[in-house]
């Protein structure tokens, strides 16, 4: 079995072409980054607002908890059913898939950003205000830089979940690494299925590693030492 998987992964024919591994990797990444970007677009400002003002904390905690319990596959089917009559072509399947992934990614990003801003030393925040920083300056010069480690961990855990879950786009006929799982199952090609799963895991780890490098570049060494 293991050697069959190895053969599948090392066969150059499987890597090339419009439906090959490279092509599906790119599709998978595109879908994942699009979802993370949209989730961040919603969750980062919301998390900053709640962390900075302390308003709406209860809403976040409940919302984040509730979102985590949503079954991805169920949302996908409902979204497809609702949107199919309204959208045409591939969009009818892409948009629902993206919605599923965004819903999945919002809770970790939101809680990371909110918790990051909230855990900033109250003394540092007080000093910042006391020295004459405006609310916006406190946010951009003190709260966000200090929150970056937790913001990053929120983004990283969201991205891990997105990459793993983006496989379900294949269920509604889209590309991505999920294709190998679905197609492999359909043709009882277990080597292809296992190979596809390994690729998903490898991609998730690689992307997380890259995020880790970016975090080391962006986060102040003064914060890393305190940990």
């Amino acid at each position: 079995m293991i050697s069959l998987v190895g053969e599948w992964l090392t066969d150059p024919a499987n890597w090339s072409g419009a439906r090959g591994i490279w092509a599906q990797l790119v599709t998978h990444l595109q879908l994942s980054f699009l979802a993370l970007f949209l989730a961040a677009l919603i969750a980062v400002p919301l998390g900053l607002y709640i962390g900075h003002t302390g308003r709406g904390r209860v809403v976040v905690v409940n919302l984040a908890g509730g979102f985590r319990a949503v079954p991805s596959l169920g949302v996908l089917f409902i979204a497809v059913l609702l949107l199919l009559p309204r959208l045409s072509g591939e969009a009818a399947f892409v948009v629902p898939s993206v919605i599923v992934l965004v819903v999945l990614a919002i809770p970790p990003v939101l809680s990371g950003v909110y918790a990051g801003v909230q855990q900033v030393d109250p003394a540092a925040r007080d000093a910042a205000r006391g020295m004459g920083m405006t609310g916006g300056q406190v946010l951009t010069q003190v709260e966000i830089p200090c929150a970056l480690p937790l913001i990053f961990s929120g983004l990283r855990s969201a991205m891990l979940q997105i990459i793993a879950t983006a496989t379900i786009a294949a269920v509604v006929g889209l590309g991505g690494l999920g294709r190998f799982l679905i197609d492999g199952q359909a043709t009882r090609d277990y080597a292809e299925m296992a190979g596809g799963a390994l690729l998903v895991a490898g991609l998730a780890l690689t992307v997380d590693f890259v995020f880790g490098l970016a975090q080391r570049l962006v986060v102040s060494p003064g914060l890393a030492r305190a940990e």
């Binding site: 020295m131 004459g132 200090c146 970056l148 003064g222």
Partner: peptide, 30 residues
């Protein structure tokens, strides 16, 4: 308020230094 505060030195109990900034950059704040 912000303008007023920039003209007044402010020292608090736990210093309240910015952990992400160097000592020099902390002191350069005002």
């Amino acid at each position: 308020p912000a303008e007023l505060r920039r003209g007044i030195g402010y020292v608090i109990q736990h210093a309240g230094l910015f952990p992400h900034r160097t000592v020099l950059s902390n002191v350069m704040t005002v």
